[in-house]
């Protein structure tokens, strides 16, 4: 009986998610300008749901001080209080409000992960496209340097760098961005390699186009689809990397709220059958799924025109 109920609940959640997606799409197509609305209408329900989730995360992250009932670092009551008003999701191991911590966690963890991924992509794809377009020695130099960086296990390498440069948020972002940029570099280079040999690139070269225009107008638009897909995946990996570093004490430092360290700090509760410590993990999972839903749709759109 229990399993049936669980199954039913599961199905219900999926339907609710799709319904939310439908509702979001319905609203979105009516409030956005014509061109965007036309594109949105083609979005499948999964992608609509994904966009809704991302939108909620962004709003919560931006308006964290207004949404959260308490202060980020404020000890408001006893440790591990149950889910009762005014602590709707209970309190953590130090007596801070769980809901508040979750809300601020969105700002910190998502914000840092996003900035890191964006930076990694900026660095990795610019260098990758450059290496593929120019070729010759610059390509060899960059590629071999990246090989060396990739030969060192990412976690050990970031631990090493963070120990050397200290554990501020800026260093954390820079270190992870540089390490992740090596992966992006490899992808961008290999994708661009296939585009550089196309006749239209040759035509542009013979026209006398400069390097910048070659990369920005001729190569980048055609390399964008796989790069966008990789962005979704990379974003999730960066998330995990930050959580792993936080777990080892070198990531986001307490008392700053961070979903990764929140799981660790409250892990003892799991032994008592309480789901509270899993909420931040769930928040990470939901965002990951949402991002990938949207990326899938974008990929489909990008490839759809080619058939």
């Amino acid at each position: 009986m229990d399993t049936i109920l669980q199954l039913l609940g599961f199905v219900l959640v999926i339907f609710a998610a799709l319904a939310l997606g439908w509702l979001f799409r319905w609203v979105a197509t009516r409030v956005t300008p014509h061109e965007t609305a036309k594109a949105l209408r083609t979005a499948p329900l999964t992608a609509s749901f994904g966009m809704l989730v991302i939108l909620i995360y962004v709003v919560v992250a931006l308006l964290a001080p207004l949404v959260a009932p308490f202060g980020e670092r404020e000890v408001v009551g006893g440790e591990f209080l149950p889910w009762e008003a005014p602590y709707y999701l209970g309190t953590d191991s130090l007596g801070r409000d769980m809901l508040t911590r979750l809300v601020y966690g969105a700002r910190n963890t998502v914000g840092i992960a996003f900035v890191t991924t964006a930076l990694a992509f900026l660095l990795g794809s610019i260098l990758g496209l450059l290496a593929a377009t120019v070729g010759g020695w610059p390509d060899q130099g960059l590629s071999r340097a990246v090989d060396v960086l990739m030969a060192i296990p990412a976690l050990i390498f970031s631990l090493l760098l963070l120990t050397i440069f200290g554990t501020s948020i800026v260093t954390l972002i820079l270190v992870i961005a540089v390490i992740d940029a090596t992966r992006v570099f490899r992808l961008a280079r290999s994708v661009a390699m296939n585009i550089v040999v196309m006749d239209y690139v040759e035509a542009a070269k013979l026209r006398g186009e400069g390097l910048l225009r070659l990369i920005v107008r001729e190569i980048l638009p055609n390399a964008a689809a796989p790069l966008v897909a990789e962005f979704g995946l990379r974003f999730c990996f960066v998330f995990l990397a930050i959580s792993a570093l936080s777990f080892l004490g070198l990531g986001i430092q307490p008392p700053t709220a961070d979903w990764g360290s929140m799981v660790r700090e409250n892990a003892t509760l799991i032994t008592f059958g309480d789901v509270t410590p899993l909420l931040p993990a769930g928040a990470i999972a939901l965002l990951t799924v949402a991002v990938n839903f949207v990326v899938d749709w974008m990929l489909h759109r990008a490839s759809g025109l080619k058939e």
Binding site: D199, Y200, A203, R207, G208, R217, E218, P221, N222
Partner: peptide, 20 residues
């Protein structure tokens, strides 16, 4: 000099940037 000599390719598919 580049302007004076132009080229038309065999495969128009690969000779035109599909994103422009």
């Amino acid at each position: 000099q580049l302007r004076q000599a132009q080229m038309i390719y065999q495969m128009a598919d690969t000779a035109l940037n599909p994103k422009l």
